[in-house]
Nucleic acid binder design. Structure first.
Lengths: 192, 192
DNA sequence: GCTCGATCCTAGCATCGCTAGACAATCGAG
DNA sequence: CTCGATTGTCTAGCGATGCTAGGATCGAGC
């Protein structure tokens, strides 16, 4: 039995290596540079090995996305709990979100721009994704305002953050005044 | 001279054909299906002809984006001028924006999701792009609120719309309550 | 009618995601 | 301890991608 367990451990270890390497490569040179050949070469296995772990490149992207969602949820919760008062909490949350997107562009792409084969806003949505949304909801729910459904408010706030993140990173918005945009957004949306 | 003019006309005509065909194909089957081979086959020329008009696939996407920007600007202005009062105008603007994104997903992708090699928020930004932003600014500037820079407000509002558009279309937001999200957004952001 | 430049196409390159089939290592039964 | 079966991995290759080199064709101008 022990030998099988060892193999299983090694296999799981290799899977982590694949995901970590894909993420690293994507952050360094963008997702276009993450080809199955290059990825295989970096982990020092042949291409088909990748397909014994994942159904295809999409699933690898999806794995990176899930990893990123967990980290993002943690970062959001950390920022929220460090702030006192609803207002400063929401501001910290927004800054943390945008900061995460800027510091981990490849992960953010895997999450929200690329097709990682993940289900969203559905029953079979993976736990990390639900949890990341929950992390937003925890801080945003309390500033939704009277008579406004907290979930709906969170969706709108999240969409605004997502828009700022993607448009800024794509060069559609000048990065200089990012901070003032956040302030304006929080000012208007949060009912403190 | 006349013969050269005819050739020039035919060339311009063919260029329009390329862009229109690319757009049509993208709307029908998505941008992934827009390969240089398929595109060449549809316009009944060989592949290299595409490269005598455009530097590459990117530039074709960019051409579709510019065409789309012009249409979007017109649609936004039409919606704005049909409404009376700042508040209803902004609501109409938001609905029109999201409607455009939903009805022309490929064009919207060319504009804001894909790399069409276009400059944004810079001096050499093509006129249609500046004009589409201007169309937003015209209606949004008047509801920015006191002491808030109209341009900055427009950027934030636009980012929120962009977030709603992309997240909804990618299945990240349930489409059922799209209308309520728009109402909430306008309610909070617009200072009427 | 001839020449020569512009125009277009055939053919091909490197690379992509993905897979079939050969080979080697390991395991379990006799 | 041996030997077939299973498991694991690799080499090689398929069809498709964006893009380009080089030859063929055609037509304008003398």
């Amino acid at each position: 039995m022990s030998v099988q367990e060892r193999k299983q451990r090694e296999r799981a270890e290799r899977e982590r290596l694949i995901v970590a390497t894909a993420r690293e490569l994507a952050e360094q040179q963008g997702w276009d540079a993450v080809t199955t050949r290059r990825l295989a070469e970096r982990i020092e296995y042949s291409q088909p090995v990748l397909y014994s772990h994942f159904r295809g490149k999409r699933e690898i992207i999806g794995a990176v996305a899930l990893e990123g969602a967990t980290e993002m949820a943690a970062a959001l919760r950390a920022a929220a709990s460090a702030a006192d008062g609803p207002r400063t909490r929401v501001t910290a949350l927004a800054r943390t979100y945008l900061d995460f997107a800027e510091r981990n562009p490849a992960v953010y792409d895997a999450l929200f721009q690329l097709d990682g084969g993940l289900a969203f806003a559905a029953e079979d949505t993976p736990e990390p994704l639900k949890d990341a949304f929950a992390a937003l909801l925890e801080s945003l729910g309390e500033v939704a305002g009277d008579g406004v459904h907290p979930g709906l408010f969170t969706e709108v706030f999240w969409a605004a953050l997502h828009g700022l993140a993607t448009l800024t990173r794509a060069g559609r918005l000048p990065p200089a005044e990012a901070e003032r945009r956040v302030e304006l957004l929080v000012d208007r949306l949060a009912m403190v």
